[in-house]
Amino acid sequence: MTDALRIEMYRRIVRIRLFEESVKKQLAAGRIPGSVHLSIGHEGAVAGACLALNDGDQIVGNHRSHGHPIAKGAQLGGLMAELMGKRTGVCKGKGGSMHLADHSVGVIGESGIVGGGIPLATGAGLSARVLGNGCVCLCFFGDGASSEGSFHESLNLAAIWKLPVVYFCENNLYGATTPARDVLAVEDIAVRAVGYGIPGEIVDGQDVEAVYRVTKEAVERARCGNGPSLIEAKTYRYGEHAEGLIIPVAYRDTAEVERWKQRDPVEIQRRRLVEAGVLSDERADEIGDEIAGEVERAVAFALESDLPDASAAFDDVYGRPVAGEER
C-alpha cells in the first residue's frame, strides 16, 4: 500500500462524510425532496472496497447509494443536483437519493429494491467473462438483502460459472429498525459463502485499510478467473435508516451508537496516517478544507441548476419513442 493510496483512502472517506453532512443540511433546508439514506458510518467500508478496483471495473449498489459513486470517483456536482431533482443531476432528476448510478465511473446500478442489484452485478460478471475484458464487478448490499432469494441465486450462479464478482455486504446490524440478529439464522453473513463453495471473509468495516486488503484479494482472485467471493464488512450507520424518518420507539441503545462512533472510520484513518508520519495534522486539515470546498461548489452547482421541464418525464422511457406511447 503506497502512501499516496492511503491518503487517497482518507480523501474519499472525508469526501463521503462531508457530502453527506451537507446533504443533511440541504434536506433540513427543504432543498431536497423525499428522504435520504445517508452513508455516514459506512465510509470506510465503501471507500476501501472501491479503491481495490481499477477505474474500468464496475460497481452495483443499493438504496444507501450516495457513498458508492463518490467512493468510485464520481464528481459531486451531478450527485448533489440529482438529490435536488435538477436537470443536471447525474440521472437528470429521474433517480434521486436511492439511485445515484453514475455510469461514467462504472456505477452501473443502484437498486431501490432490496437485493434487486445483486443479479445485475452477476450479469456484469457474465459480460466480463464472455467479452474477456478483464473487468470485475463489486456488488454492495446490506445485511437485509442477504436474506433475499436474489442473493442466494446470484452467489450460486456466479460460483458455477466462476464469474468475476465480489459480493460485498455492508452489515450495519439493522434492516431499517429490525436487528439483523433477529432475522438471520447465522451470526455472520460471511458463512453463507460456504453454501456456494466460495470464500467468505469478515472484515472490520470501520478500518478502510483492512477493507481494502480483503477486497483487493477477492478482486485479484476474481480477475484471475478463480470466481466470486463474499465479504462481510461489519459497520454501522450513525443516523436513522432514512434521514427524516420518525421512529416512535427506540430500537437501538444510545450507548451502542456512541460505542460505534468511538471507532469512526474518518478518525481511525486520520490518526493512523498522522501516527505513521504519512500525513501531518495540518495537511489532514487542509484535505478537509479542500473537500469542503468541493462540496460547497457541488451545492452551488446544484442550487443554480434548473429543474427539469415537466415534459422531460416522457423522455428515456425507450431508446426510440414508441408510437402511441405518449398521451
Partner: peptide, 15 residues
C-alpha cells in the same frame, strides 16, 4: 429472478 437479473446486468455491460 437470479438469471433474469443476471441477463439485465449483462445487457447493461455489453452483451
Amino acid at each position: 429472478n437470479g438469471f433474469s437479473g443476471m441477463g439485465v446486468g449483462a445487457a447493461l455491460t455489453g452483451l
